[in-house]
């Protein structure tokens, strides 16, 4: 369980890459097994658990009433945050939110927000006075690598099961939150000189730059993020985008299958 020495791990990853192998035996574009459970937590208005290889992530949705922003009086709001608490791995320390966890939350947030799957106008109760604020909180419980994709999947799955608790706030009847579309993220990391899909924790430790791509239902891009030091070519991006299309499609079907529709 002790962390491997990074320089030795890096050597091993480079050696494996020469024969196009990965440290856990997967092919370059293979995904680990993903399990999704939804609507599992009392008190959360929508919830999901994603088990993605050795990564375990929960997401919960809460609603609150707030006054709209002055320049958008008829729109509700959406906020997505992620916490990398020390429960998730021995490498995480207690303390204020790290730059890593802020990046994670914001990349997931952008994918959901920019896909337009939540109609902000539909979150308005009284224009200029009262709108719904939708809060998605993501809790990483076990970091076995590629927490970005797991968090993105948990967030959209939790959102798709959310019920607006209007009765508790005395503003009408409880109703299902309208969600149009399922944005899904696919993440890649340069390991041993070439990109692989769905990096494991070892590959993240011994890898270089990572790229996160969120695709919506029409396979439009909704969020992109390049993280860590490293440089890539347009041809490399074109290659991983093709891989992302396949995996995002499969995972979108998994989310849809959970809702029984």
């Amino acid at each position: 369980m002790a962390a491997p020495v990074p320089s030795l791990l890096r050597q091993e990853l480079e050696r494996l890459a020469e024969s196009d192998q990965r440290i856990d035996g997967r092919g370059r574009w293979d995904r680990r097994e993903v399990q999704l459970e939804v609507d599992i937590l009392y008190n959360a208005e929508g919830s999901a658990k994603v088990t993605w290889g050795d990564t375990v992530v929960y997401a919960g949705v809460k609603f609150e009433l707030r006054t709209p922003w002055p320049d958008r009086p008829t729109q509700g709001s959406l906020m997505c945050g992620a916490e990398l608490r020390p429960v998730a791995h021995r490498k995480y320390e207690p303390g204020p939110p790290s730059p890593q966890s802020i990046e994670l939350g914001r990349v997931v947030d952008r994918g959901i927000r920019e896909s337009g799957c939540i109609d902000m106008e539909a979150l308005c109760i009284v224009p200029g006075e009262k709108v719904w604020g939708v809060m998605i909180d993501i809790h990483v419980l076990s970091d076995g690598g590629n927490i970005f994709d797991a968090c993105g999947l948990a967030a959209i799955a939790a959102l798709r099961t959310a019920v607006v608790p209007a009765e508790r706030f005395d503003v009408g009847e409880d109703h299902v939150l309208a969600v149009k579309g399922t944005p899904v993220m696919a993440s890649f990391q340069r390991v041993g000189g070439r990109f692989v899909y769905d990096p494991s924790e070892d590959e993240e430790t011994g890898g270089e730059e990572r790229i996160h791509i969120t695709l919506g239902n029409e396979e439009h891009l909704h969020s992109l993020q390049k993280g860590l030091k490293g440089a890539f070519t347009p041809a490399e991006f074109a290659e991983i985008l093709e891989v992302a299309r396949t995996h995002c499609g499969e995972l979108r079907e998994l989310v849809s299958s959970m809702e029984g529709n």
């Binding site: 929960y58 997401a59 919960g60 916490e83 429960v87 809060m135």
Partner: peptide, 17 residues
């Protein structure tokens, strides 16, 4: 030992931390 409540664990959301 750390005891922590997730933001979505209660009826009203609690601020992380």
């Amino acid at each position: 030992v750390r005891y922590n409540m997730a933001p979505f664990s209660t009826s009203d959301r609690i601020r992380p931390g």
